[in-house]
């Protein structure tokens, strides 16, 4: 049959046309993703930057107006609050998470306790942040009142399983001959972990923790019932109500006053800038790491 050979040279058939159409749809999907995301970022930059940088650095240093319809700057206390809450959460969850991951990878292995912890850590990553907020409200805020620390507790509980998960993955990548070499030199297990395993995995661990921090810094729901609504600077971690950028955005977003909405955009700009900065640092650390190898 001679037609077969000529078929192979035929004009683009419906098969290749369909393939081209599907490829086109994929490109369209990229566009469909890019559109809203670019729109959000554009709105944040366009409306937020002008607010944040008007009479610089007032927006970053002034206190928040008590009467929200009054125009003018002020997110200073929210920036301090965000640092307090996120910093506190990091101090609580990162050491605990790294130690927990050390147990899972270096001691636990496939033991029952390790399997249970691994499973429950997966369960814990699925706990909705608002549920964690109510939990901390019941456990902490009902007894000790509003404070940055309550928010830090809630964020720490959200970060813990994430830190454990990413750290365990990094520890698993450390080749076992490094450990064996250390044992051969007479080092104990704990010494091997501290002096050999952790330094080898450090860049990966740091970058995983930074990503968890970036996520936590933007959380709002867990803070709603724990932190309160201060408008003045409160540098204390444990005493009195505080505030955060995310809480200020949430509070001002539904306000009908243009001044409050402006402050919400300014706060959003600041928050996005902070989270991107932390993510960027995490990227740089990872890049260094892969170059070192």
């Amino acid at each position: 049959m001679t037609t077969v050979a000529s078929d192979l040279h035929a004009k683009p058939s419906w098969r290749s046309a369909r393939s081209a159409i599907m490829t086109g749809l994929m490109v369209a999907a990229v566009g469909a993703v890019a559109l809203p995301l670019v729109a959000v970022l554009w709105a944040v930059i366009e409306r937020g930057a002008s607010v944040a940088f008007a009479s610089f650095p007032d927006f970053f240093t002034s206190e928040i107006p008590v009467i929200s319809r009054r125009a003018g700057p002020g997110m200073g206390p929210a920036i301090v609050g965000t640092f307090l809450v996120t910093g506190g959460a990091t101090l609580l969850s990162v050491p605990l998470g790294i130690l927990g991951a050390i147990y899972l990878n270096e001691y636990g292995g496939t033991r029952k306790l390790a399997r249970a912890v691994r499973f429950m850590a997966t369960v814990m990553t699925g706990v909705p942040s608002i549920v964690m907020g109510l939990f901390i409200y019941i456990m902490w805020t009902m007894r000790f009142g509003y404070s940055a620390f309550g928010g830090a507790l809630a964020l720490a509980a959200l970060m813990l399983p994430v830190v454990i998960g990413s750290t365990e993955q990094m520890l698993r990548l450390v080749p076992s001959h490094l450990r064996e070499a250390s044992y051969a030199l007479g080092a104990t297990k704990s010494r091997t972990i501290i002096a050999i395993v952790l330094p080898a995995a450090a860049p990966g661990i740091v970058s995983g923790c930074l990503l968890a921090v970036a996520r936590a810094a933007g959380e709002t729901a867990p803070l709603l019932f724990a932190v309160g609504a201060a408008t003045a600077y409160n540098p204390s971690l444990f005493d009195e109500a505080n505030t955060s950028l995310s809480l200020q955005i949430f509070g001002n977003a539904t306000s009908s006053f243009a001044a409050a909405q402006d402050r919400a955009w300014g706060a959003a700009f600041t928050l996005v800038l902070l989270t991107f900065l932390v993510t960027f640092i995490a990227r740089v650390v990872t890049a260094r790491f892969s170059r070192m190898r």
């Binding site: 729109a39 709105a43 996520r215 933007g218 995310s246 955005i249 977003a253």
Partner: peptide, 14 residues
């Protein structure tokens, strides 16, 4: 890593 509250702000105001 863009915080959900920022998406919410865009949703409600834009």
């Amino acid at each position: 890593v863009v915080p959900s509250v920022v998406f919410g702000l865009w949703g409600v105001l834009v």
